[in-house]
């Protein structure tokens, strides 16, 4: 008898299954999934700002920098917990006018390179509140990989985008100019280091002379001499400082080399090269000019800010 009950059971369950599929067949639109590129979910409109004052309705998504307003203060770079913002600033020349921001602040530093690595960004939104000019903002654009014909472009047209690597360069400064500025800054740093070394050597020499003199004097008066040892150790600490600043200049170089590798500028050569011969600023000139003493200060101030 199980033979017949099996057959009726089979027919019954088959009809049951056919009912289900027909139910879906007659009204597919009700159940079908979101047709993604054609339709998108509406962006949630809730306040995700930090406080009452910076309340804004947007999801935390792609970052955009209005580079015209950026003063290169690196507040955002320091705020980023994953260090995915890389900024390269160089001080403009003495007579160079870098413009003012929309807030009226005068821009003093040229932001030669402003890179946000979106593949590392975790969308924590910690970089936007510190910005004094409100120029780094989060947009609701969450569609990073896109064809241009899908019309998802909400960012300013000046921003340069590498959609393979998700590394976004916001600075408008051209690659050649960036190279020049870098070479200049390196030259200045070198000159500064040389000047410092020179100064130190002089100081050392003077100290030695002094010590020798003192020793000569001491030799006359007494036999033990504790002070000269102190001065020698002090001069050693200065020289290590110079080394550390030099290495910090080099730490910045790989960041610039990222952009070097991506941009189609033909002369791009990655990392730590010696300055190209056609750089307009020769190292020797700067030291001799009277302005050089003013220029000499800024790499160190930059470095101290960075630290």
């Amino acid at each position: 008898m199980s033979y017949f009950s099996n057959i009726t059971n089979a027919v019954g369950t088959l009809i049951e299954g056919m009912k289900v599929t027909m139910g879906y067949f007659v009204r597919p639109r009700e159940h079908v999934t979101l047709q993604y590129p054609d339709e998108v979910w509406p962006i949630p409109t809730r306040n995700i700002g930090v406080g009452e004052l910076d309340a804004y309705n947007t999801i935390r998504s792609k970052l955009v920098v209005d580079i015209d307003d950026c003063i290169g203060c690196k507040a955002c770079e320091r705020a980023c917990p994953v260090n995915c913002i890389h900024i390269d600033t160089y001080k403009g020349g003495p007579d160079e006018d870098l413009g003012t921001t929309s807030n009226g602040t005068k821009i003093k530093l040229l932001t030669a390179s402003f890179i946000i690595d979106m593949s590392e960004c975790m969308f924590c939104d910690l970089c936007t509140p510190p910005c004094p000019e409100d120029c780094i903002t989060m947009t609701p654009d969450y569609q990073f990989i896109s064809n241009d014909n899908l019309k998802m472009d909400v960012t300013p047209e000046q921003r340069w985008r590498d959609r393979n690597l998700l590394i976004y360069q916001f600075s408008k400064v051209s690659e050649t100019e960036r190279q020049q500025r870098k070479a200049q800054a390196e030259a200045i740093a070198k000159a500064k280091a040389e000047a410092l070394a020179l100064k130190k050597a002089e100081a050392l020499k003077a100290a030695e002379d002094k010590a020798a003199l003192a020793a000569a004097e001491e030799a006359v008066t007494a036999k033990l001499d504790p002070t000269s040892a102190e001065t020698v150790s002090a001069s050693e600490s200065v020289s290590t400082d110079i080394n550390s600043t030099g290495s910090e200049v080099k730490v910045d170089i790989p960041i610039a080399s990222v952009t070097l590798a991506e941009t189609p500028v033909p002369a791009a050569e990655p990392v730590a090269n010696t300055p190209e011969p056609e750089t307009p600023v020769a190292p020797g000139d700067d030291i001799s000019t009277p302005d050089s003493s003013e220029n000499l200060e800024d790499p160190t101030t930059k470095e101290s800010e960075n630290g």
Binding site: Y24, F25, P28, H31, V32, T33, Q35
Partner: peptide
């Protein structure tokens, strides 16, 4: 199309 509708898809579009 039929299979897509029965499987709650839209099929070729």
């Amino acid at each position: 199309k039929v299979s897509a509708f029965m499987q709650v898809r839209l099929g070729p579009m």
